[in-house]
């Protein structure tokens, strides 16, 4: 009992509404994945970083949009489409990566090769 009290009161003050938490965590995820996206040279890593960043954006989109007007169907629809697009993009990236390895390329893009 105390735990969810603890969790809700502490975090339910005006300052830390649930939407803000969603936004903050989302922003954190995006930050990490951007560093990963640009830091990594291995293509697979970069694709996975992209996926992570996608979910961060969807988190913000859902969190921020819970307007006081109660349940709002639009962000749900947006996130759904976003997920579909992200999945298909990752699929395409993986296929091209496989063909790239098959055609003799290493796991890094030419310009990253030392």
């Amino acid at each position: 009992m105390t735990t969810e009290l603890f969790t809700t009161e502490l975090f339910a003050t005006e300052l830390f509404t649930t939407e803000l938490w969603f936004a903050l965590i989302g922003a954190l995820i995006i930050g990490i994945s951007t560093i990963g996206f640009f830091g990594a040279t291995h293509i697979l890593k970069r694709i996975m970083a992209f996926n992570l960043m996608g979910s961060g954006v969807f988190l913000i989109m859902v969190g921020l949009a819970q307007h006081d007007r109660g349940v709002d169907p639009v962000p749900q629809a947006l996130v759904l489409t976003g997920i579909v697009v992200a999945v298909s993009a990752t699929a395409l990236a993986l296929i091209i990566f496989r063909r790239y390895i098959a055609s003799g390329g290493q796991s890094k893009l030419p310009e990253h090769r030392s």
């Binding site: 995006i30 954006v57 989109m61 962000p75 947006l78």
Partner: peptide
């Protein structure tokens, strides 16, 4: 992300 913030 920008779209999300605007919608927010």
């Amino acid at each position: 992300l920008g779209v999300a913030l605007l919608y927010g």
